[in-house]
Nucleic acid binder design. Structure first.
Lengths: 236, 236
DNA sequence: CGACCATTTGATATGGATCAAGCGATGTGG
DNA sequence: CCACATCGCTTGATCCATATCAAATGGTCG
């Protein structure tokens, strides 16, 4: 793919610290909206919540755990649409059916909100209608950022992913990754080997530290930011 | 420069306007909604309609011509978000600013709809609120399909692109491409050379015919469909 | 401890990028 | 009306980032 030795490049570039538009996998809990009542449901690790092309009867909100949405391509590869953390909504559809499958990455609790109730509400409650729109728009924002990641180099994709996670799951200066290398790879359109090698390389260049495979300590955010091309796509 | 080989351009336009039946790059004119009034504005080939990060004061609807939206990445590469044909809406934002730039690929006419008026309307007119939501959702749908394209092989991407265009601008069994190879390449995350070679290859294998560089005759839709992985991502 | 699974690391292959001509159509000025 | 520059596209040769194939290592749980 389009290569460019991002290292020197980065330095020549103004570090336009572009505060990327907030809520990544979209649908942050920017709204407690008491109007959204639903049934709490537990899902254990690796169980499916819904499958693509099933009727989209519920909108979900993550209470605890982590959810991934994905499609399976004809050749068997899997594309992950996004990772959803507590507070995030997922499963919002405008058409009749789900366009992705969703399952729990870790043991999770989600709130299932009946769609029929929601849309009924929305027709006369403008606040709800606005909320549904905002949720859709957030999702759109996230997919667009994701799209941008997919045309970058492996290093940029992995850095971009880490920056995205940093915004959402940073504790101190370390991130705990709830997902496997395979999940990351499928989200970034790379192979697990490339993801692994890239992380190792970032560690060798002291941009990060990997105390364990699921924990990333950010040492040089600036370096990662520079590598993360999408963080400053409004070029020179 | 200011010139354009307007040859078939003018004529194909009218035809396209009434052949389209789909909602590909989203925001199809599935709604004439008399409530959306705006000022008709002409833009000549290669002129900008708005730039990314400018205040998003207008929503646009294509009357004639073709529009592309894009972002420029830090390394100078350009990513095209979508191509908008007559009937399509573009420039819909939820945040304050445009997240893409937009310009006319060919001489075009667009309707500029004041956003302030729209949002005002939406707060008490549910139909308008619904429309805005649907437009956003259509865009989301399109970006998700686009995302899928970007993780496929060059042949799949080009085939996918042709299928997408076929849904929107097919006349008989031929497509007139209003955009350059560079535009296609930037939409697919490939180089112009790869796009060109891939088209040549499709021609050699008799899947298509290229009477001229801007005209594609579809000979074996089935072959293209098979190559177009995204058309059937819900694998075996 | 041993089986299993996730991750890393190594060696090699390859699809598409890059670099570099060529070519045909359009437009320009003499 | 004809050389000639320009532009968009194609074609060819080579390179390289990432995939693929393969094996080693490490962590977890019975």
């Amino acid at each position: 793919m389009s290569m460019q030795h991002g290292l020197q490049n980065g330095s020549s570039r103004q570090v336009a610290a572009r505060t990327r538009n907030e809520s990544a996998p979209a649908t942050q809990a920017f709204m407690g909206s008491n109007k959204l009542t639903g049934t709490p449901m537990p899902f254990s690790r690796n169980t499916q919540i819904y499958g693509e092309s099933e009727p989209a009867d519920y909108l979900y909100k993550v209470v605890s755990g982590v959810i991934r949405t994905y499609r399976v391509l004809a050749d068997g590869r899997r594309q992950i649409g996004g990772f959803y953390l507590p507070g995030d909504f997922f499963g919002l559809e405008v058409g009749d059916d789900y366009t992705f499958s969703a399952d729990a990455i870790a043991d999770s609790k989600v709130l299932a909100i009946k769609r029929s109730a929601l849309t009924a509400l929305a027709t006369h409650d403008n606040e709800v209608a606005q909320l549904l729109w905002k949720l859709t728009a957030n999702e759109l924002q996230h997919v667009q950022d994701h799209t941008l990641l997919l045309v970058e180099t492996a290093q940029e994709r992995v850095s971009g992913f880490l920056m995205e996670m940093a915004k959402r799951a940073l504790v101190g200066n370390q991130i705990e990754l709830p997902m496997s290398r395979q999940d990351i790879a499928d989200y970034l359109g790379l192979t697990i080997e490339t993801v692994s090698r890239t992380l190792t390389h970032l560690e060798k260049t002291s941009a990060i530290e990997l105390p364990s495979s699921r924990v990333v300590v950010l040492l040089k955010r600036s370096t990662l930011n520079q590598l993360d091309g999408s963080a400053r796509y409004y070029a020179a």
